[in-house]
Design a protein around this nucleic acid. Structure first.
Lengths: 233, 233
DNA sequence: GAACCATTTTGATCTTGGTCAAACGGACAG
DNA sequence: CTGTCCGTTTGACCAAGATCAAAATGGTTC
């Protein structure tokens, strides 16, 4: 039944979520799952559906979003290798977010029932799940405070600093995905994102196309006033 | 060492978090904890501090908030009987939110180290913690989408509907706490909250002081366009 | 290299919500 | 009963961001 190629296993086994669990149990989970390739712009699941699978993005780029009345909003951009929608799977409640691929992506699909069954038996997996959910909660707390008490250019500035930090404090990098998606993630319109980049030009950031160059990190940080608490992961 | 009075135990033992755990273990947790009474407007802990205690509000009203640059924002109003800041305790990371009492409150303080120790041993507690964190995550997802794609009067309308639902669809109730706090929770200024209440007058809501009367639930719902997905708890 | 397409940017204008100031009102002390 | 204090409401104004329209940019195909 497993459509999973051997080559992927080490990467997945190294995930915080699966890292500490019993080897036999992990084998059981992985052999009950399947790896699928999806084209770009494909909807993986919709908000409101029963949570049938835990998803692990192995390769590509996935957007988690919510379509409200009229407009949509991007909640998270998932980069490999990361699991997503753990909370819905765990609680056996409907998905709160929809997911679509942004680029062609490979996704490991772990049947939710299997996941829940193994969690009950494997304490290490349960602990890892708990930890993962706690970190996810904290991410959301940060995102919400960001939205509530920062304005748009400041949010962009912080996002750039964080993004840079994620790639070893690179001062020169490419934005992944389209700007419209970034705008939605940051809670603004594409037009406004453009203007926000304009504002940041005067605070040490140079942009051309998708290429961002942080010319003056101190100036950018002074404008962004980043959270003094370090990121959790 | 236990300052806990016998009278509180049944209520606390009935909490989803502690309900299913081993009786002896629960006894161990509760006897290692203490119940304290705090006056109104007292800071229980500050964002950035080490998470020393899991808190359980037994009686009173507590505000979780974040003080950013200049302004504050309310993240949650905790009503009894509820545990709070589970994620920080679980991960042994600093608090992301500060907490203050709004009214005189009784709080059970469970030492974080004790909590973490017992979680490791008691699978039922671990499972309950996991579940609680998942629900907390989902709460935050909802709050963030609310902030990102609804405008202020709409957020108020939804809050009123939810608040009403929490008390058995009462159409007539009192707001708990001050309006300034409600405004901050909903991500607006007190002035704007006033105007939002004004807007809702034309949509079936009557207000005088802290007393809210929903005269026309259908009209309010039409304006609020509430989430079709039911609340998780 | 030219034409075409989608995305991004720019500009003008409008809406929402924030700010500041003043009036109002209810709770409480004297 | 009356004055004081604090939270709330109202009003006038301002600023941030959304919307709408049009121009520019960049990549792709023929």
């Amino acid at each position: 039944m497993s459509l999973m190629r051997i080559g992927e296993k080490p990467e997945i086994a190294r995930l915080p979520l699966f890292r500490d669990m019993d080897d036999a149990m992990r084998e059981r989970v992985l052999s009950g799952s399947f790896l699928q390739v999806f084209p770009p712009q494909l909807t993986l699941f919709e908000r409101g559906q029963q949570a049938d699978f835990l998803h692990v993005l192995v390769d590509g780029l996935v957007e988690l979003y919510v379509s409200g009345t009229g407009r949509d909003t991007t909640m998270k951009i998932v980069e490999p290798v990361t699991s997503f929608i753990l909370a819905a799977v765990m609680t056996d409640l409907p998905y709160l977010m929809s997911a679509r691929t942004l680029t062609s992506s490979r996704v490991l699909l772990v049947p939710a029932a299997l996941m829940r069954e193994v969690i009950r038996k494997d304490t290490a997996l349960m602990q890892a799940t708990m930890h993962e959910l706690a970190l996810g909660y904290r991410d959301m707390v940060r995102a919400l405070t960001d939205m509530k008490l920062r304005q748009s250019a400041e949010r962009l500035a912080n996002h750039l600093l964080e993004f840079s930090a994620q790639r070893g404090n690179a001062w020169d990098f490419e934005l992944s995905g389209e700007k419209r998606v970034l705008a939605s993630l940051l809670g603004m319109t594409p037009e406004n994102l453009s203007r926000a980049f304009g504002t940041l030009k005067e605070h040490g950031v140079n942009i051309s196309g998708a290429r961002v160059r942080i010319e003056d990190r101190a100036a950018l940080a002074a404008f962004a006033r980043p959270d003094p608490l370090p990121a959790d992961r």
